[in-house]
Computed example of a mutant assay.
Amino acid sequence: MNVKILCQLFVQYLQLEKNSSQYTLGSYEKIIEQFIAFMEQQEITSFSSVSYSDVRLYLTTLHDKQLSRRSVSKHISCLRSFYRFLMRENVAKDNPFALASLPKKESLIPRFLYKEELEQLFGISKLDTALGQRNQALLELLYATGIRVSECCNLKLNDIDYQIGTILVTGKGNKQRYVPFGKFAGKALQTYIEDGRNKLLINGNSTEDKVFLNFRGTQLTPRGVRVILSKLIEETSITCKIHPHMLRHSFATHLLDNGADIRSVQELLGHSNLSSTQIYTHVTKERLQKVYNAHHPRA
């Protein structure tokens, strides 16, 4: 069977049977297409003809491109899953990626924003404009809940419960969870939805049920959120680059710094494995100073 057709069948399998997100589907399809290009360069005509030595050569090309360990691991995991699918469909007899070892994970501490930096961000938006109200609600909600940018963009009006202060979030694999939000996020959301959002709807579709809209009155995209945050950070004295996940990092770090237990933070973030949450168990300089001052007799 044509290699590109097999790639499409695998993507359909992930979508229908594994309920994978659109992000995962696009990422895996791109990786397999890159591997197909490698096969064409090596004059390998079928997936069943790929050997372990071919896999090692492919991984060498990834390292030559200076891909991060995380990206290389993603390539291996994707192609390993792809070959399991090919074996199930009797297209390949064995899995040449089964012996490929995943690179050791880089122990990087997630970049987060300090409270002083967040206060600067929260004071930037012009609350007398529709876009300013939207930006404020966006910032407050991302930090108050720690939700992913895709989850934020897909949030619907009916997902917000102001009475008990929670939102219903649909995460990876369409798994749903309730996440609470505080009074600052609640006030910012109500102001935006009752005023600014209605003004934005004039330019678009009045039946749009997504919470966050762009200036055209249609659903805001994750890329649009990144652009908004980049423009906001330029108006502050903060020197680092910002991305939506940084607010998620800040949410988790500040919760743990203030005594929240890791299992609760795991549930709030929507992590399937505790190991994903453990990257936030680093301590900030501020917390170290507080511990030192509170417990050292000569502080």
Rank of each mutant, 00 (worst) to 15 (best):
Q136A: 12
R88C: 03
D161Q: 05
S68G: 05
T284H: 04
E119A: 13
A188S: 14
G171I: 01
R111L: 13
R216M: 10
C7V: 04
V227C: 03
D64I: 02
Q41V: 06
Q266L: 09
T191N: 14
L155H: 02
L247I: 09
G204H: 02
E235F: 01
H243Y: 14
T239K: 15
N203I: 00
E140T: 02
Y162H: 10
V50Y: 01
T218S: 12
A98W: 01
F10R: 11
E40M: 02
D209K: 09
G132V: 06
K241P: 00
E234T: 05
T191Q: 14
L118V: 12
E119L: 06
T239I: 04
R88G: 15
S230G: 02
T239N: 10
L247K: 05
H295A: 15
V211E: 05
Q289A: 13
L86I: 03
E194G: 02
H282W: 07
E17T: 09
A144V: 00
S77N: 13
V211G: 10
S206V: 11
V3N: 12
K115S: 08
L255Q: 05
F82Y: 14
H282E: 10
R88P: 00
H271R: 03
I242H: 05
V291M: 13
K104T: 11
P222A: 08
I164S: 14
T284I: 04
E17H: 13
L6R: 01
G26I: 00
D257F: 01
G204T: 08
H75T: 06
S264N: 12
Y162D: 05
H254E: 12
F47E: 09
S27F: 05
T221I: 00
R88M: 14
K93R: 08
T45H: 10
L142H: 01
D257V: 01
R70K: 12
F47Y: 14
L232H: 04
I32D: 07
R70I: 01
M39I: 07
S51K: 03
A144I: 04
I160Y: 04
K104P: 00
R177H: 10
K183Q: 14
H271G: 09
A137E: 08
E235M: 11
V3F: 02
F47S: 10
I160Q: 09
L131I: 15
V169L: 03
S275G: 00
D161T: 03
L139F: 10
I262P: 00
R80K: 14
L155Y: 06
V291C: 02
K183A: 11
I228A: 13
P222C: 09
F122V: 02
L268R: 05
K105V: 10
T166A: 05
Q163N: 11
E235K: 15
R70Y: 03
